[in-house]
Simulated assay, not measured.
Amino acid sequence: MARVHYRVVQHDGGWAYRLGDVFSERYPTHDAALAAAQRVVAELRQPGESATIEYQDAEGAWHTEQVAADDRPEADVIDSTERREP
């Protein structure tokens, strides 16, 4: 099973959560970004419906895959930032 880590970081004059190289929208406070990341993790744990998804990879190629409803990654939030507001 896949394991993903969302990280709360300072970003663009505020705070965001990040997965890999992708940032969320900017939040004005650390606590707001942390709460948003925790909501995302909670939503990832909910089973959904099987679906066909399409996505574009870093090289620009498109892919189509079938995703099972119970195929959920293990996810958590890593909050290793100092809580200094920008």
Rank of each mutant, 00 (worst) to 15 (best):
residue 10 Q to G: 11
residue 23 F to M: 12
residue 29 T to W: 01
residue 22 V to Y: 10
residue 10 Q to E: 12
residue 25 E to A: 11
residue 14 G to I: 04
residue 37 A to H: 08
residue 9 V to T: 11
residue 35 A to R: 10
residue 38 Q to A: 10
residue 32 A to W: 04
residue 29 T to E: 08
residue 36 A to H: 03
residue 31 D to I: 07
residue 32 A to D: 13
residue 17 Y to P: 05
residue 5 H to A: 14
residue 28 P to Q: 09
residue 27 Y to F: 12
residue 11 H to G: 01
residue 31 D to E: 06
residue 8 V to G: 01
residue 17 Y to I: 08
residue 7 R to P: 07
residue 32 A to Y: 09
residue 18 R to K: 09
residue 28 P to N: 09
residue 38 Q to S: 12
residue 8 V to H: 02
residue 8 V to S: 07
residue 9 V to A: 10
residue 19 L to S: 08
residue 4 V to I: 15
residue 19 L to Q: 12
residue 26 R to C: 06
residue 6 Y to H: 07
residue 4 V to S: 02
residue 6 Y to E: 02
residue 38 Q to T: 13
residue 25 E to L: 05
residue 25 E to V: 09
residue 36 A to L: 08
residue 29 T to R: 00
residue 36 A to C: 03
residue 32 A to E: 12
residue 39 R to S: 15
residue 34 L to F: 02
residue 5 H to L: 15
residue 15 W to E: 08
residue 38 Q to Y: 08
residue 4 V to D: 10
residue 26 R to F: 00
residue 27 Y to N: 04
residue 31 D to S: 07
residue 24 S to W: 00
residue 23 F to N: 15
residue 26 R to I: 02
residue 10 Q to S: 12
residue 37 A to I: 02
residue 31 D to C: 02
residue 11 H to T: 00
residue 19 L to T: 05
residue 5 H to I: 15
residue 17 Y to S: 06
residue 28 P to I: 03
residue 25 E to F: 02
residue 15 W to Y: 00
residue 32 A to K: 07
residue 15 W to V: 00
residue 19 L to N: 09
residue 27 Y to T: 01
residue 39 R to K: 13
residue 27 Y to K: 02
residue 6 Y to D: 06
residue 15 W to N: 03
residue 35 A to Q: 09
residue 9 V to Q: 13
residue 14 G to L: 04
residue 26 R to K: 07
residue 17 Y to K: 06
residue 15 W to R: 04
residue 22 V to M: 13
residue 5 H to C: 14
residue 24 S to G: 06
residue 25 E to Y: 00
residue 16 A to S: 08
residue 22 V to N: 12
residue 14 G to Q: 00
residue 12 D to A: 14
residue 20 G to I: 05
residue 12 D to R: 12
residue 38 Q to M: 15
residue 34 L to Q: 07
residue 36 A to Q: 07
residue 22 V to R: 15
residue 20 G to V: 07
residue 22 V to F: 11
residue 18 R to V: 01
residue 24 S to V: 03
residue 7 R to D: 14
residue 18 R to F: 03
residue 33 A to V: 06
residue 39 R to A: 13
residue 29 T to P: 07
residue 21 D to I: 12
residue 9 V to R: 15
residue 6 Y to K: 01
residue 33 A to T: 04
residue 21 D to F: 14
residue 25 E to I: 13
residue 13 G to Q: 12
residue 30 H to C: 05
residue 23 F to Y: 14
residue 5 H to Y: 09
residue 28 P to F: 02
residue 40 V to M: 12
residue 35 A to K: 09
residue 11 H to C: 02
residue 15 W to S: 05
residue 32 A to V: 02
residue 4 V to C: 05
residue 20 G to A: 04
residue 24 S to Q: 00
residue 17 Y to Q: 05
residue 6 Y to R: 07
residue 21 D to N: 15
residue 6 Y to F: 14
residue 6 Y to P: 00
residue 5 H to G: 10
residue 39 R to G: 12
residue 15 W to M: 03
residue 27 Y to P: 06
residue 13 G to A: 14
residue 16 A to K: 00
residue 28 P to H: 05
residue 20 G to W: 09
